[in-house]
Each structure stands twice: as structure tokens, then as C-alpha cells.
């Protein structure tokens, strides 16, 4: 969800207020430039990509959904423009696979939209929301209790895909503690998904035995 301040800014941009564009650019150009430059390591090229990002945003402004966080939306556009740039200059790893960029283009679609998917995007969104809600509740509970080690354990397991033993070794905790943390999270997420009337087994982490 866009912040109140961003929502107001979007309204002003849609009303064509020039000052709003100045504020918008001043608010977001720094983080976008840092994001792009981390990949390109070329300041001039990075500025070009950020410029393209702002153009892309301006063109998509009528369709921007304020339920999406503005920063996330801008990073998505920047990511698309960045990959497009890498492809143009021959620096993208899938550049020379077989000359067929269809798959890459699908991946690059900012809206991640229309797929001839086996499961509908609406269904996928429902499943994602259920997982996100249950995880957020769990993570908030741990953060408020100052149990950051448990948050780290889950982030390494799920986000980075590390094995239990590697997580335990890295964080200096027992494998049992890691396994218990994983078990608590899997139980909570699975319950939440079932309560929402959705199948938990579409998520590999909820059906696999931990390594």
C-alpha cells in the first residue's frame, strides 16, 4: 500500500502539478540510481536507466494501482529497464541462448501479467497473500519479542534456501533450534492457508522434509 504522502503525491502528479514531479524525482532518484548502479557499475549508463524508469512510470501513471507500494512499483520498472539495458548491450546472461527472448520478455513484464498459466494469477495472488499474512504475523511476533535470531533462521531457510545445518553453523545455534523454528513456521503457514480454503501443498517448503 502506498504511504499517505505518496498517495497525495500521485494525486498531484495525476493533476499535472509540475512541482509534484520535482518532489517525486528528488524523493526517488537516489535510491533508484543506487539500485541500478550496483548492477551496472557505470554512472552514466545508470542515469540513463533511471531516466527510462521515470519515463516508464510517467507512461504507466494512469494505470498505477495505489494498493501497491510506490517504491516497490518503481523498483519493478527499474528492474525491467535494467534488464532491457543489459540485453541491449549484450551483458544479460540469457542474451545469447538461442535468440528467442520470449521467455525473458515474459519475465520482464512489469505487471507479471497475463500468463497462459495452469493456475490463474488470481489464485496465485490468494495463495501468496495467505502466506504473506501468516508469515508477517509470525515475524512481527518474534521481532516485538526481540527474537531476531528466529527471524534470521527463517530468512536464511526460506529466502536464501540454506540447509538446516548451514543455518545452525552460520548463526551459532543448534540444528534442533533451527528445525523447531522451521516447524513452527510451516505449521503456522499451513494452518493459515487451510483456513483460507487453499491447498498448502502448492508450496514446496510446506511439503518437503527439511534437509
Amino acid at each position: 500500500m502506498a504511504s499517505e504522502s505518496d498517495r497525495l503525491l500521485i494525486q498531484q502528479l495525476r493533476n499535472g502539478e509540475e512541482r509534484a514531479w520535482e518532489i517525486f524525482i528528488a524523493r526517488y532518484e537516489g535510491r533508484l540510481l543506487a539500485y541500478v548502479n550496483r548492477r551496472l557499475r557505470d554512472r552514466a549508463a545508470s542515469e540513463d536507466v533511471v531516466q527510462e524508469t521515470f519515463l516508464g512510470f510517467r507512461n504507466s501513471l494512469p494505470n498505477y494501482d495505489e494498493k501497491r507500494e510506490l517504491q516497490t512499483y518503481l523498483f519493478s520498472i527499474a528492474s525491467y529497464k535494467l534488464t532491457d539495458y543489459l540485453r541491449k548491450v549484450g551483458r544479460h546472461p540469457l542474451q545469447h541462448v538461442d535468440g528467442n527472448s520470449d521467455i525473458l520478455n515474459q519475465q520482464l513484464d512489469v505487471q507479471k501479467a497475463a500468463s497462459s498459466a495452469a493456475r490463474s494469477s488470481e489464485r496465485k495472488a490468494l495463495e501468496s497473500d495467505a502466506v504473506a499474512r501468516s508469515l508477517t504475523a509470525l515475524l512481527d511476533q518474534w521481532r516485538h519479542a526481540g527474537e531476531f535470531v528466529r527471524v534470521k533462521i527463517l530468512e536464511l531457510l526460506f529466502v536464501k534456501g540454506w540447509a538446516n545445518r548451514d543455518v545452525a553453523k552460520f548463526l551459532g545455534v543448534s540444528e534442533q533450534h533451527v528445525a523447531n523454528t522451521r516447524f513452527a513456521a510451516v505449521k503456522k503457514i499451513s494452518e493459515h492457508i487451510r483456513d483460507a480454503g487453499l491447498p498448502a501443498d502448492v508450496f514446496p517448503e510446506l511439503r518437503e522434509e527439511p534437509s
Binding site: I103, Q106, Q107, S115, L135, F158, P204
Partner: peptide
């Protein structure tokens, strides 16, 4: 990329 486009996802991806 194909799998993701087909609708496959994971807890990690959602996170």
C-alpha cells in the same frame, strides 16, 4: 522462469 510463469511459487518467492 517458465515454471514461475506457469504459476509455480514458493514461500521464499513470496517472502
Amino acid at each position: 522462469i517458465k515454471d514461475q510463469d506457469r504459476g509455480e511459487h514458493s514461500v521464499g518467492a513470496v517472502w
